[in-house]
């Protein structure tokens, strides 16, 4: 996956990050990978939105039909460390996506 991490606006400082450049196909692969990964537990979304939450409290929101992905960093992470936390989530998503592609 070749994507960029962009800060999105939120009242709680620097908690939302969008992944730019995710295609619908990449989104579909990522969705499958998240569904299969026990570290990410799904919680109810709205419409077709899928929301996955990690034990650390980070969330990944995914809209399958458009490929939009948003990372919501857990509020317990201090504001100054939130970009790094989001980058950490991105690295994990990339790894999950690669593994899912390899698996077929």
């Amino acid at each position: 996956m070749s994507v960029t991490l962009a800060r999105e606006l939120a009242c709680a400082r620097s908690r939302l990050f969008g992944l730019r450049g995710v295609t619908i196909e990449q989104g579909r692969i990522l969705l499958g990978a998240l569904e299969a990964c026990p570290r990410w537990r799904e919680r109810p979304g709205i419409g077709e939105l899928r929301i996955f939450r990690s034990a650390a409290g980070h969330e990944v929101l995914l809209v399958p039909s458009t490929g939009r992905v948003q990372i919501r960093v857990a509020y317990v992470v201090p504001p100054i460390e939130r970009f790094d936390a989001a980058a950490g989530v991105l690295v994990e998503l990339a790894r999950l996506g690669r593994a899912a592609r390899r698996a077929g």
């Binding site: 709205i46 419409g47 939105l49 929101l61």
Partner: peptide
């Protein structure tokens, strides 16, 4: 904020 959210995108495109 709602209009720009993934939640809205999933409901309204």
């Amino acid at each position: 904020g709602i209009l720009l959210s993934p939640e809205w995108e999933s409901v309204a495109g």
